[in-house]
Write a protein that binds this DNA or RNA. Structure first.
Lengths: 202, 202
DNA sequence: TCCCTATATCACCGGCCGGTGATAAAAATA
DNA sequence: TATTTTTATCACCGGCCGGTGATATAGGGA
């Protein structure tokens, strides 16, 4: 008596993707494999090969699921008045969005620790989303002339990403705790101050 | 005829540590294990258990080897004149030091992706070294009052670390390339500008 | 009703992993 | 020389991994 499951392909595919997201979010990319995902999904690993063509295809499916995450998290109410305010919102929004999404954190860590073409595509999509949001909400705001805005902005974004990942993994960075909400308020204040001083008017 | 090796314990231990550093620097913490290290060292993995008590002890030995790396890399010639200059040197020095040491890069990535008490100790030591350097070369320079210097500084350090790790893993960050020396000049210019504007006098 | 296809499972393979007990052989000691 | 200690290797274990060919079975169409 081999107890087959619901025999609904779409449903099974969805459950596999869900299981993959769970395994990745909980255990990270280590221990992320066909066996673990299939166990979690309660089905045979063969289905991962049959429906997704292997782990890579499954990761792509996760990526498709993840598209638009940043956009929805970064939704801004009113248009910013200055370029400094625009960057300020970008940084703070990205910080909160990343802090609230463990899955994306794990993917970011994955990209750093074990680069692979598949994961690189996920990360690239995230970068594109950031750029798109910038372009959309920027309006006609322009950075002060003479400033290398892209370089400055990825510098700030990189800081946020590193601090969030370190917080998740170790609870601190370079000896400074990153756990309580007060800790994060310090970080956010620092980010805001930097954005304002860097893009100060006049 | 079982060909024993040189039968010099100190030498064998050193070769094991060297092999461990090589494996870690080349392949990262994935694939870092007793089998890989022993293969690389050309000896039996049993020796790793006998001499180091397992992988953890071996990692500790690497850490002992690595102590003082930052201090020697951050050696500064003349004392800085302003706090802004102090931070500027810290950031630029840390950037070059980290860029030039793949092993430390891999350890930093390890900490983010697969936190463990052993690796945490390595990372903590690095943080302490940064703090020590700051305390030593600061002299009587003080950050402008009203600024949360620790929060601001780890923000900048975190950015540098993230950018270096992303460069190593993917060659870019958020769509901005990080490969040629010109790319890094942009980053360094951005860092310097931020440090100066944040800690601007008056 | 019977058959056929889509769906899902099972059983098995080779390979690498961490870990350990027994053994060989060089070197020190007597 | 004979014995003990140190140094190093070997052979093996159970377990998990990714991957695949053969097999069962549910459900829809004839």
């Amino acid at each position: 008596m081999t107890e087959s499951r619901s025999r609904d392909r779409a449903r099974t595919e969805a459950s596999i993707v869900a299981a993959a997201r769970e395994v990745l979010a909980e255990d990270g990319f280590q221990g992320f494999g066909v066996n673990a995902v299939a166990r979690r999904a309660g089905c045979d690993k063969q289905l991962i090969y049959r429906y997704f063509g292997g782990l890579d295809g499954l990761v792509d499916a996760i990526g498709a699921d993840l598209a638009g995450w940043l956009e929805s998290s970064l939704a801004s109410e009113s248009p910013p008045a200055t370029y400094a305010e625009l960057v300020e919102r970008l940084i703070l929004g990205f910080l909160e969005a990343l802090r609230g999404n463990v899955l994306v954190q794990k993917i970011a860590a994955w990209e750093i620790a074990g680069p692979s073409p598949v994961v690189a595509r996920l990360t690239a999509a995230r970068g594109m989303a950031l750029g798109r949001w910038m372009a959309n909400t920027r309006g006609d705001l322009a950075p002060p002339p003479g400033l290398d805005a892209p370089a400055l902005n990825i510098f700030l974004i990189a800081a946020v990403q590193q601090l969030v990942l370190s917080s998740s993994a170790a609870g601190s960075f370079s000896g400074v705790p990153l756990q309580s909400e007060a800790d994060w308020e310090r970080v956010k204040a620092a980010a805001v101050l930097i954005a304002r001083r860097v893009y100060a008017e006049g």
